[in-house]
């Protein structure tokens, strides 16, 4: 097997919506830069798809990319995983890339998996770092980041997606350097490549402050006791302009909809403050809330695992503590 690595280009798959490059793609660019630096003579090239592709490549000043392969086919404006993978594969061939880096988004992983399957190549998802050598060693996330894996990846072209928020994104367009040179090319896509595509967009039924945007999230677990028990959490969240979330236990029991679930198989949140009420702090829950700036735990059990993750704690029955906090907030607002 050919040991890819030294010299050949590193191709970064850049996702854009309406000409704006998404954050995880900027992280993928940040991930690729040191990789290129370590492989002598390697350069970073990017691939961008759709009718706004050239414009979005133009916003990437000082991205470290030497060249943008642009497939301006307007059919690619709609997400179609096979067509996107075919276009990515065409760019891979065109550039003779030895590494393809994709963002660790739903789409990034899906498109890369299609490319891997079509080409019979292995793929490493949610990679955190790479030690490039003739035989690559990489570190990737398992269990949504609760565990790390050291792995070898040997293939003529190495396909990796970057774990979300493992590296800081490059600052798009901040620099004074020239925009990336865009080369348009025809990826020779077939109609059948578009058989699976987004057929439409339906509005979401959700309303109020979204969990991923809220500055304060009040989370409830089994300790809340019932669906009705969430009323007191709603009240506190309302007073703080925040949102209510929960653990998997409360969504499995039907106390809350799954869209409120925080954790490995739910949402990842990053509020200023997460108030974890009656939540034990299982690792699968913690991976969803550890990006919070601060965590306050309210729990009857001072030895609960959440205590080693939280910054602050109130020991006690949430049924007494939460309403008391709401009452105190009201009292001070009234006094002011």
């Amino acid at each position: 097997m050919a040991a890819g690595g030294a010299g050949g280009p590193i191709l970064v798959f850049v996702e854009q919506v309406g000409g704006e490059v998404d954050r995880l793609s900027l992280e993928a660019l940040a991930f690729a830069a040191p990789l290129a630096a370590a492989a002598a003579g390697a350069r970073v090239e990017i691939v961008v798809l759709g009718s706004e592709a050239a414009a979005s490549a133009g916003t990437l000043r000082d991205s470290g990319a030497a060249l943008a392969h642009v497939v301006a086919d307007a059919r690619l404006d709609t997400y179609a995983p096979v067509a996107w993978a075919a276009a990515l594969g065409a760019a891979m061939d065109r550039s003779s890339a030895v590494v393809v880096v994709a963002p660790g988004s739903d789409r990034g992983n899906e498109v890369l998996a299609h490319l891997a399957a079509r080409r019979g190549l292995p793929m490493a998802a949610h990679v955190v770092s790479v030690a490039p050598a003739a035989s690559w060693r990489l570190v990737r996330q398992r269990w949504a980041g609760s565990l790390l894996e050291d792995a070898a990846l040997d293939a003529p072209v190495r396909l990796v997606s970057v774990a979300p928020h493992a590296v800081a994104p490059i600052e798009a367009g901040a620099g004074a350097g020239p925009p990336v040179e865009a080369q348009l090319f025809d990826a020779d896509l077939h109609d059948a490549d578009f058989d699976v595509r987004v057929g439409g967009i339906e509005a979401s039924e959700a309303d109020g402050v979204s969990l991923t945007d809220a500055k304060v999230v009040v989370g409830g677990g089994r300790g809340v006791g019932s669906a009705a028990g969430f009323g007191q959490l709603e009240e506190l969240a309302g007073l703080l302009g925040g949102a209510v979330g929960g653990s998997r236990v409360v969504t499995s029991l039907g106390w809350r909809p799954h869209s409120d679930q925080i954790g490995q198989t739910g949402l990842r949140i990053a509020p200023d403050l997460y108030i974890a009420c009656g939540i034990s702090g299982a690792i699968q829950h913690i991976v969803g809330c550890k990006a919070a700036k601060r965590i306050l735990a309210i729990n009857t059990d001072p030895d609960s695992p959440i205590m080693s993750v939280a910054d602050y704690a109130v020991i006690g029955d949430l049924g007494a503590v939460v309403p008391a906090i709401s009452a105190e907030l009201r009292r001070r607002a009234g006094a002011a």
Binding site: A117, G120, L121, A124, E149, A151, A152, D154
Partner: peptide, 8 residues
């Protein structure tokens, strides 16, 4: 297909 990645 080339197998992998290989856990070390």
């Amino acid at each position: 297909a080339v197998p992998g990645p290989t856990m070390v």
